[in-house]
Every structure is written in structure tokens, then in C-alpha cells.
Design a protein around this nucleic acid. Structure first.
Lengths: 204, 204
DNA sequence: TGTACATCAGTGAACGCGCGTTCACTGATGTAC
DNA sequence: TGTACATCAGTGAACGCGCGTTCACTGATGTAC
């Protein structure tokens, strides 16, 4: 693939170079210079499209949140066919996202990007979060009001377990021993949790 | 505090300098040179006590696992007064450790240290892990054998949720909004999970 | 108790490296007439 | 269709910096006699 003096779509090419670097070396191991090199371009060229290293990293995260939110929306599917099934579907979508988009995931959750420094990032992150919370709220309507936990707590529990499974049992590709496939582990964990809420029959 | 040409206990002083740096800037943000400076010593002096930067980082993690294992043992207290109470106690101990020893915690779980490169580290990590698993095994004996999940899965669920709570809701000191105190969040989450396993009455 | 000497734990200078960032520049593209 | 020119998106050289690591060294400590 040849190109002349002008690249064509350098901006997105840099984002994609950053993605593979982040997936390989983590968000702090990623360097602007290396991303430039991988896009066949001088480091200085990056500054035509981004304010600097952190700004490029933030763009990666932003695109990640976009994809993530869309995936969640799709999985939730307005609560069809049932609130329960839709909720479980979002849980699976979370893990699928982490597996399929590791660079995005790391930029989003492991880069330590300040959401204050990038307000638009905070916005799109909030949007993604709200999908899961909506699913949790809808599902918790099925519970007797007396022992219904706040939906925010409900979804925080699921988010925490999902994130923990990703970090502890999906990462560490070669050396680490994952006693169970992460997907099964999370599915079982959420199942038990939902049973604890009385949303699943106690024996299934 | 004055000292002469010889430091006295530089090795441990470096570990402690590393700890505060890691707690402040994360494991990848920590530098050997800065640790040396903080211990009032030339960077070259570090090499009298450690093979290099990574070796120092590994020592921090090693000490962390020691403390962690001891804390877990103490919290578990051989299953007294009851398997259930002891188990819940280890859950609380996990979060207490993360809060009280952030530098250790980060070196252990967020540094990406290769356990293969440091076999003694793998050993002590395994020891710490086994305490929680023992607690889970003991507790799961109370369940009807038919729907008893493998203790390894049981403890993996709790570990995942604990870790997720730490990463998502205990970190991000100033900017991030933690909807609930992490301790409460985890306690409630584990409670619901245990109820799902039939280890807690459905209404309490 | 005093002296000679080996060992040890530091120093300080130097190294090569890759980083993020800046700057004046230039080649390519697109637009007005 | 052709030409002049503005704009744009790159180059390439340079910068200052802090990093991890090495090396020959030296001052302090401890031990043998």
C-alpha cells in the first residue's frame, strides 16, 4: 500500500496504531513516537491531528466508549425478550467487548485518563454507563419493593464483578492460570447473584 | 534524621520509597531514580541491593503478598466463630488491605509483573490466594452437594467482585464519583451472592 | 588497646536511549479566475 | 483547460529531559593479630 506525501486519513490511522500498541503494552507503555512510526509518519505529523500524546489516548478511549455504548444498547435491545434475558445479555456483552476490543478497554479503564481534563470523554462514558443502569433498573422492578436494592448499586455489583473477571482472569494471556473460562465464570457469578436477589428460581 | 556514609538499612528504605511513589503514580510511573532520590541516595546505590528496577518492584509485591496472606489468615481465624462469619471477614480484609496498602496492592495486581520471571513471587502469591480458597471450601461444605459450585469458582467470584470494587469504586480519589462507600458496596454484593448460594436466609 | 588490612556500601560521572514537543521548511492539493 | 496562488499536511532536524545502567573510585566498617 503506497501513499504520496499526504496520507489520506492519518488521524484514524494513528488511532488504530495506538490501539494495537495499547493492547500489546498497556496504556502507559504506549508512546506517541511509536504510533507515528507504525503509521509510517514522522512524530511531528501527529500534532496536525492531536494536541499531544494524551489527546490521542483520549480519542482512543472516546471511540471505545462509543462502541461500548452501542454494543450495550444492542445487547439490551429495549428489554426484549424479557428484562431478565436482556440484562444477562448486557453482562455477556461487557465481556465480549473486553475480549474483542482490548486496546479500547485498556484505554477506557486502565489508562487513568482524567475525565475532568476531557469533558467530552466524561459525557460519552456516562452514556455507556447509563445503559447498564437502565437494564438494572428495569429488572429490579420485578422485585418486591421492600428488598429492592437501589438500581445504581445493583448495576455497580455487576460492573464490579465483570471488571474483576476481566482483570484477573481474562488478562495475563500465557503465564497466568485461569481456572475457568472467563465467560463461564462471569455467567455463573451473575446467575448466583441474581438468584440472591430472588430474580431466578433457587434451583435452576 | 542524619546518617553518615552508610545508610543503615537502605534496602528497606528503598522499598518504602517505592511504595509511596507507586501509590502516587502507579506501578508504571514509578522510577528507580526517584526512589533513590527519596531515600537520599545515588541511583547507582540501588544496585547494591537490587538487580534493577524490576527487581525492586518485585520485592515490593513480595512484601505485599506476605502482608496480604497474613491479614487473610488473621481474618479467617481458622473458620471461627463460624464458616460464614470467617468468610465474610476475609472479604472485608481484602478491601481493608487495598485501602491501607495501596502501594503494595498496585504492585501486586496492577504492575503486570511476570510471575514466571520471579518464581518466589509466584509462590507467595499462591499462598495468599489459597487462604481465600480455603475459606470458600469450608463454607461450601454447608451447601447441599448437588448445587455446590467448585470452591475455586466460588472464591474466584468473590475475588473478582472485590477487585472490581477496588478498581472501579475505591480508586480515582478526587474526580470520580463513587455512588456508595466501597466497603458497603462490597458487603452488600457478597451478601446477595451468598444468598444466591443459599448460605444466607432469603430475607435478611 | 592499637594498628593493618580486607570488605562493604556508598559516590559521582558518564553512557546511550527514546521520549514528547517545537520549528522552519516544503511538497501536494484545491480553488479562483 | 490552464495558470497563480493560498492552504494544508507532511518532513526532518533539533531541543531538553529523565530514564536505567555501568564503572572506577573512595570513605566507613569490621576483623585479625
Amino acid at each position: 500500500m503506497k501513499r504520496g506525501y499526504h496520507h489520506g486519513n492519518l488521524r484514524q490511522a494513528l488511532v488504530e496504531a495506538a490501539l494495537t500498541l495499547i493492547a500489546e503494552r498497556g496504556p502507559t507503555g504506549f508512546t506517541l513516537s511509536e504510533a507515528a512510526k507504525q503509521a509510517d509518519v514522522t512524530p511531528a505529523a501527529v500534532y496536525r491531528h492531536f494536541a499531544g500524546r494524551e489527546d490521542l489516548l483520549a480519542e482512543v478511549a472516546r471511540q471505545g466508549y462509543d462502541i461500548f455504548a452501542a454494543l450495550m444498547e444492542y445487547a439490551y435491545d429495549d428489554g426484549k425478550p424479557s428484562a431478565l434475558a436482556a440484562f444477562e445479555s448486557t453482562g455477556r456483552a461487557y465481556l465480549a467487548f473486553a475480549r474483542k476490543y482490548p486496546g479500547h478497554y485498556m484505554a477506557m479503564f486502565e489508562s487513568g485518563l482524567s475525565l475532568n481534563a476531557f469533558p467530552d470523554l466524561a459525557l460519552v462514558a456516562e452514556k455507556a454507563r447509563s445503559v447498564l443502569e437502565k437494564a438494572a433498573a428495569k429488572l429490579s422492578e420485578q422485585m418486591p419493593e421492600s428488598r429492592r436494592p437501589p438500581p445504581a448499586m445493583f448495576s455497580a455489583h455487576v460492573l464490579a464483578m465483570s471488571h474483576g473477571v476481566v482483570e484477573l482472569y481474562m488478562r495475563g494471556a500465557p503465564g497466568a492460570k485461569s481456572p475457568f473460562p472467563p465467560e463461564d465464570l462471569l455467567e455463573a457469578g451473575i446467575g448466583i447473584y441474581l438468584r440472591g436477589l430472588g430474580l431466578l428460581p433457587p434451583d435452576c
